[in-house]
């Protein structure tokens, strides 16, 4: 739950995504998250949740839900 809130908030506040577009099924590329944006997002999530996502593979093909699951896995660990 925390991961979902953090990811959604960052996508809206830092990357200008429309809140209505940020759903579990939305592919990140549809939010204009290219490779540079994903690496920026990785750092922001790490700082916000004090976790290490270095080993997590991020691609624009992933959905918001897949990203949240990956983050959740690291939060739980």
């Amino acid at each position: 739950m925390i991961a979902a809130e953090v990811v959604s908030a960052l996508l809206v506040q830092r990357f200008g995504a429309d809140p209505a577009d940020v759903t579990t099924e939305t592919p990140l590329r549809k939010l204009r998250m290219d490779s540079l944006a994903l690496e920026e997002l990785r750092l922001l999530i790490e700082d916000r949740l004090d976790i290490d996502l270095e080993e997590v593979a991020l691609t624009s093909r992933d959905t918001v839900g897949q990203l949240v699951s990956a983050v959740d896995g690291k939060v739980a660990a």
Partner: peptide, 8 residues
């Protein structure tokens, strides 16, 4: 500029 453009 908007958030999306400004961040770049």
């Amino acid at each position: 500029l908007g958030i999306a453009a400004q961040r770049l």
